[in-house]
Simulated scan of single mutants.
Amino acid sequence: MKVVLSGGGTAGHINPALALADVLRDRGHEVVFAGTPTGVEARLVAQAGITFVPFEAAGFDRQAPWTLVTSTLKILGSARKAKRWMKEISPDVVVGFGGYVCIPVGLAAESLGVPVVVHEQNSVMGMANKFLAKRAASVALTYEVAGKDVADASKLVVTGNPVRASIASATRAEGRLMLGVPEDATMLVVFGGSLGARHINQAVCNLKSRLLAVDDLYIVHITGPKEYDSVVECLALSEEESRRWTVMAYQDRMPETLAAADCAISRAGATSLAEISALGLPALLVPFPYATEDHQTTNAKAYVASGAAFMLPDDALDSEEFSEKLFALIEDESVRAAMRKAAGGFETQDAAAKLAEVVCRCARA
């Protein structure tokens, strides 16, 4: 079977696609990826050793109505190119993970009678997925609520959000050796997704003295590339303090980093939550307040309701409530143990296999 995967814009669209690719290739299927030439997908897909085919796509700016015309023309042009390409390779199924590039790829598939499967990572369906869901053979969801706008409910299936096998297989010992963190220390990882999170960084920096006063607490602080210099300047760590507080702009080896950690502060993006739940990592979630329809808050609610995480709104990061929740997470092993147990109920480790079954069922005979 030949499968075309498509997605773009953020790592949150690409990582679950790569997790599915791993499963499909292990089962002997051929996988190719269609994405934008300059998006993060071009780099991540190449690193995974998957054939990458570029197509131009762009959204439109509501503040600049004329961009609707230019983006539509770009998408239609790419749809024609994608159709010619698909005639050459004859795929059995196309799987879209979100991002504007999925629209021309999905339209090309539809015009050729190739089944389309959509996977939505978040609790609110993105525009591209919403568009393709009307035409899809199946719509796979991480959260059931994301399917509320799909008229044909028979298409819907909840699979969870796939994570790559490297997440599930990473070990605490391996991560701690890589990071230089003693086995018996407590480790906090701070990260805001691939772009970082300024307000989280600032709030954590403001607690520097209190955090370093905790015996044997090690902090791995992933700032995001744009925030690195300001965080380093704000913390002004001495050589001794740097032994326990590691600041980095970006971390390519997140599986080992998360496996090494005892607890985390994170945004509530789909990929971050999937990786946290796959590892059973206790977390304080701070949803990004400007996400579409506040979907990160909706994403996080299921974790909080089950007892797998704390949650705090972004505008409360400067309050005492933030430090209370953070230090409860750091200092109380019983709190972390309860969260680890609750996280096991999400079965994230099986999501890639579940999605692969949906794709195989929908593939053109």
Rank of each mutant, 00 (worst) to 15 (best):
A249I: 10
Q121P: 06
A170S: 12
M86Q: 12
R267W: 06
L132H: 08
V304L: 00
E110L: 10
G147K: 07
R43W: 11
G175C: 12
F55E: 06
A185W: 09
A309G: 14
T159D: 12
Q202Y: 00
Y218H: 13
N206G: 11
V214A: 11
I330L: 11
P104N: 09
T223P: 04
K301F: 11
R336T: 04
A302H: 03
T67S: 14
L177P: 00
F346C: 05
A249N: 05
T298S: 11
A21D: 12
G106L: 00
A351G: 04
S238R: 05
L284Y: 09
F97G: 07
A64S: 12
R84E: 14
T70C: 00
E88R: 15
D315N: 13
R243L: 05
F327W: 01
A305D: 15
L5V: 07
G39L: 01
V358D: 01
T72S: 14
A337V: 11
L188K: 03
K83Q: 15
G345D: 00
S277H: 11
E241V: 11
S6G: 13
L68G: 13
G160S: 07
R135P: 05
E333S: 09
Y218I: 10
D294S: 06
A308V: 13
E120D: 08
D152G: 10
K74A: 08
V114G: 07
C205I: 00
D149K: 15
A46T: 08
R243I: 13
A19V: 09
G98W: 04
A351Y: 09
K74T: 09
E30Y: 05
A19H: 02
A291L: 06
V231P: 02
K148V: 14
L132W: 08
R164W: 00
P313G: 04
E357M: 02
N206S: 02
A137E: 15
V286T: 11
H119D: 02
V105F: 00
T159Y: 13
V114D: 02
D61E: 03
S138C: 09
D318M: 00
D184K: 10
K301V: 09
A236L: 12
S209C: 08
E88N: 08
P255H: 07
G180Y: 09
G106I: 05
S111G: 01
S194F: 08
F60M: 12
Y303L: 06
G269H: 05
A82C: 06
P65Q: 06
H119A: 08
A136G: 08
L156I: 14
A302G: 08
R361I: 02
E30K: 11
F55K: 03
L355K: 03
D332C: 13
S319D: 08
D26Y: 15
E333F: 00
E144N: 14
Q251N: 14
D332A: 13
A278Y: 06
F310V: 03
F55R: 08
G196K: 01
V23I: 11
V358M: 04
V247R: 10
G160R: 03
V124S: 05
R27F: 06
V4W: 05
F288N: 06
G269N: 07
L44M: 14
I103N: 04
